[in-house]
Design a protein around this nucleic acid. Structure first.
Ligand SMILES: [Zn+2]
Ligand SMILES: [Zn+2]
Ligand SMILES: [Zn+2]
Ligand SMILES: [Zn+2]
Lengths: 168, 168
DNA sequence: TTTGAAATGTTATAATATTACATTTAGAGC
DNA sequence: GCTCTAAATGTAATATTATAACATTTCAAA
């Protein structure tokens, strides 16, 4: 239920009609996880997380800053970068390196790195966790005697919806 | 032959004793490929490529700029960024997104995206092209109806040599 | 030899991120 | 409740990375 239209394929990134639901769930989970870990999800950090989830596409630090300033006159770059550091550190958001942008993660309780599909047409990004990709990465590292600490996978192209709606 | 020491494992990135050889080969290949494609590998572009190959680790744009300035007083940011744009575009170098840095590619004749292993201890980076990783990425994209245009894989950790020499 | 496109020069500025130090806040222990 | 401390935030300055805009030069094709 709660689909946008009849014929359009679902968004690959968020299939719910109401993205605000995603946000509420994410914030609730962030509260939970923070409590469990003894972290301080302060008003500021929570608000930054909320602003990130409010967007359908990955958000840039200075866009967050601009939004913050409207409700918090003395917000400055460190304000947002510190909040982002915390949120990334704890897995509530991922940084997408190829975009210098941030996106919420809906499974912060699981320790992992993001793998992303990014549509260059609509700008949406979807997180994957494909065990085959992970296995191939681990195996490659192992073969080369490399101790893998972190991995970054960012795939760009066009999502199904954009291909369909734009004749390609 | 041409090994560095007795017991040390070879560098995972460049196993030749003389890295200058890598550079000479890369420049010769760049000349070849440029001629074949009707490209202008100008003195400036060639020099930037040479500076990139001269380093054992990925090089940052402003480090290149600083080096260029010593022999070319009016070098400015656009000087280096334009050369880099050309070199990346034509596949002579890859950009490593997670480092904001550039590294030479020794197979510019083959159209591909880099996949990298990056040692966080010695800073060296090695390009891979693991067909299993590629297959897993393609398959994932296909399954989601995504038309894949480019992919980015950057793996960080510690190389065999660093693990051995630093007791881990 | 003209001439037009590509490359480079030049200046300025945009976009992204961090350092350093001061102040405030929130919770632990009393 | 107080006190103390560590964490979080405020604040100013600056570092790093990258691009825009327009002028000039170079180079090869016609
Ligand atoms: Zn995630
Ligand atoms: Zn799309
Ligand atoms: Zn390559
Ligand atoms: Zn190493």
């Amino acid at each position: 239920m709660s689909r946008h239209g009849q014929a359009a394929p679902p968004s690959f990134a968020c299939e719910r009609g109401d993205h605000a639901e995603c946000m509420r769930d994410a914030l609730a989970k962030a509260e939970q996880v923070s409590a469990a870990r003894g972290l301080r999800l302060t008003r500021l950090r929570r608000r930054v997380l909320e602003l990130i989830w409010a967007s359908h596409t990955p958000v840039k630090a200075y866009d967050l800053l601009e939004q913050l300033r409207q409700e918090h006159a003395n917000a400055a770059p460190p304000t947002v970068y510190r909040a982002l550091d915390f949120l990334v550190q704890e897995g509530f958001v991922h940084r997408i390196e190829s975009l210098n942008a941030y996106i919420g993660c809906d499974i912060p309780e699981r320790d992992h790195q993001g793998q992303f599909l990014i549509c260059e047409s609509c700008g949406e990004a979807a997180e994957l966790s494909n065990p085959e990709i992970e296995a191939a990465l681990l195996e490659t590292a192992r073969t080369l005697g490399f101790r893998l600490e972190s991995s970054l996978v960012e795939l760009k192209g066009r999502c199904a919806r954009c291909r369909q709606s734009q004749s390609a």
